[in-house]
Every structure is written in structure tokens, then in C-alpha cells.
């Protein structure tokens, strides 16, 4: 009796002790993320409350940085620039990529090959995208000649023009982002059971009706995801503006996004406190988008499952 009891006890002990191995396995990652994620996340908030130029230790100044930002011309400008970039690139990307997904969802000869060509913007890094577009946007380059029948101009200074440069940067962004979102839409379309389309057909719906009434409502979770992801990534717009636009975010700051402001304050002016405060502001913006996504995505009245 006693020996049996002991055996059960020790077996329990072995199992309990084994579970510590789980902790040992996750520990390297957890320690790493505490050092390189949690700690900087917290110090980021702290730095935003200090004056810090890297030369002397940070000095706590309360919410002065935030108060100053409200009067900061560059920061205020960057909010409208960022919102312009977000809206200007997200809306067309989401809609057009859905159209392309619908197109490639149909059956026709040569579809797979053409789809691969369409996917080619997935390959270059954002730095390569920027460099290519700088050449495409040469004042007397390809794009100028494509629109020449309309404008009659032999030279257009795309990236130095204060109206045109945000537009062409949005174009570059749409070009490089669309294949990814098309892929997501296509996956969403493929997940809709064919029976539902057939059922709509039997009930006498034409193609358009079947799309509006059956497929589009079922694509709602996909739509929420696509919109949220593209909005969040556009909020972080940096590399295109840094490389394509003259003087990192120029001309006259029309391409100075929040990301560019963080970089400028941090690594050009070495005003780490101000840069951290802008980061916190950007963080809040992105969290609002993420929160909206979670709320909208949750009601799965229309989803298949």
C-alpha cells in the first residue's frame, strides 16, 4: 500500500518536474524579448518624457515634448502627410487588388503565367522599389513619355514637384503592395464553397448579384484584414519617402511622414526625447487601427465558420 502510494506520488513528481522543461525551452526567447522588446518599449515611453541628446544623460521634463509637438510645424505637417499617404495608398490598393483577384479567379488560358508576372513586385525590397522608381520617374524618362500624348511635355520633374511627388510615391507604393493583397483576396475567394455560388445561381441570381449578395458578405473578414494590414503598414511609411523624395521627405516636407520625422529628430537632430514622443504618437495611431480591426473582425455574422 505504501509502496503504491509512493509510486503514484513520485510519478506525479516526475510529470510536474518535466513541465519545468517547458519553461527552460521558452526561456531563451523570453529573456531575449524582455531585453530587446519589453525594455525598449518601456524606455521609449520614458524617453518621450525627457530631454536627451545622446551626449548627456536624459533629463526628465514631464510632458514638455508632447506640448511642444502640438506647436511643431514639421510634426503637424507630417500628420497630414501620413494621413494622405495612408488614404491615398490604402483605398486604391484594397479595391484594385480585389478586382485583380476576381480577374485571376476566373478560368482562362495563360492564367498561371500571367499571375506569376503580376506577382513580380513581391520580389524587390523596398530599397530596390525606390531605386527603380527613381529611374522610371526621371524627368525625361519612361513615365514622362507615357503621359506625353496627354501633357505634351518633354520633361516633368515628378519627384521635385510638390503636388506630383506624393502622388508618384503613392503609385510606387500601390505597385509594390498590390500583389500581396491580391493574394489575400484570392485566398478569401477560394475559401468560399462553390455550393453557395451554385445555390445562388439556382435561385436565379446572375453573376453580379451572386457576387454582391453571396461572395462579398463572406469576404468581410478578409476585407477587414486587408484594410487593417494595409493601413497599419502605410502608417509606417518611411523607405519610399526616404529614398525617392529629395532630401528625405522633401520637397518642402510634402513627403515627411511620421516615420521620417522620427528618423529626422532622432538621427539628424539627435533630439531623442522628441523622436520618442512622435513614436508614442504613432504607436497610439496604430493601436487605434488594430483595435478597430479586432472589433470589426469579431462580429462573424457573415463568416463561414
Amino acid at each position: 500500500m505504501i509502496s503504491l502510494y509512493r509510486r503514484v506520488w513520485s510519478e506525479k513528481n516526475v510529470i510536474a518536474r518535466r513541465q519545468y522543461w517547458g519553461l527552460i525551452f521558452v526561456l531563451p526567447c523570453v529573456i531575449f524579448f524582455i531585453i530587446f522588446f519589453l525594455y525598449p518599449l518601456v524606455t521609449g515611453f520614458y524617453l518621450s518624457l525627457t530631454k536627451y541628446t545622446l551626449l548627456r544623460p536624459p533629463v526628465f521634463i514631464g510632458f514638455d515634448n508632447y506640448a511642444n509637438l502640438l506647436k511643431d510645424r514639421l510634426f503637424l505637417k507630417s500628420i497630414s502627410v501620413t494621413l494622405g499617404f495612408v488614404v491615398g495608398s490604402t483605398a486604391p490598393t484594397v479595391v484594385l487588388s480585389l478586382f485583380v483577384a476576381l480577374l485571376f479567379y476566373q478560368k482562362f488560358p495563360g492564367r498561371e503565367g500571367l499571375k506569376l508576372i503580376f506577382f513580380s513586385p513581391l520580389l524587390p525590397s523596398v530599397a530596390v522599389v525606390s531605386v527603380i522608381w527613381v529611374v522610371l520617374l526621371h524627368p525625361s524618362g519612361i513615365l514622362t513619355n507615357v503621359v506625353r500624348p496627354l501633357t505634351g511635355k518633354a520633361e516633368i520633374t515628378w519627384i521635385h514637384d510638390i503636388t506630383l511627388s506624393p502622388i508618384v510615391i503613392v503609385l510606387a507604393r500601390i505597385w509594390s503592395a498590390m500583389p500581396f493583397y491580391m493574394l489575400i483576396w484570392l485566398a478569401g475567394l477560394t475559401a468560399i464553397p462553390q455550393e453557395l455560388r451554385d445555390a445562388a445561381r439556382v435561385d436565379g441570381a446572375n453573376r453580379l448579384q451572386s457576387f454582391w449578395r453571396v461572395e462579398l458578405p463572406l469576404l468581410r473578414p478578409t476585407a477587414v484584414f486587408v484594410m487593417a494590414v494595409s493601413t497599419i503598414s502605410a502608417f509606417q511609411g518611411f523607405a519610399l519617402q526616404y529614398v525617392i523624395a529629395p532630401n528625405q521627405g522633401g520637397p518642402v516636407d510634402v513627403n515627411t511622414t511620421l516615420g521620417i520625422v522620427i528618423w529626422k529628430y532622432g538621427f539628424q537632430f539627435f533630439r531623442m526625447g522628441d523622436a520618442a514622443a512622435v513614436s508614442v504618437f504613432l504607436f497610439i495611431c496604430i493601436m487605434v487601427v488594430t483595435g478597430t480591426q479586432i472589433t470589426l473582425g469579431r462580429s462573424d455574422r457573415y463568416s463561414i465558420n
Partner: peptide
Amino acid sequence: GKRILFALILSIMAVPFQILLIPLYVE
């Protein structure tokens, strides 16, 4: 502590790198 540690991992994916840029550089 498994749940809370996993929540930490998930939260990392929700925070964009730009937010960490300045404090990480200082670190």
C-alpha cells in the same frame, strides 16, 4: 506563467518596429 509569456510573444507581433527604433538604438 505560460499564458502570460505567450501573450508577450503575441504582443510583439502587434507592435511595429518604428515604435522601438529610438529606444532600441539608445539601448
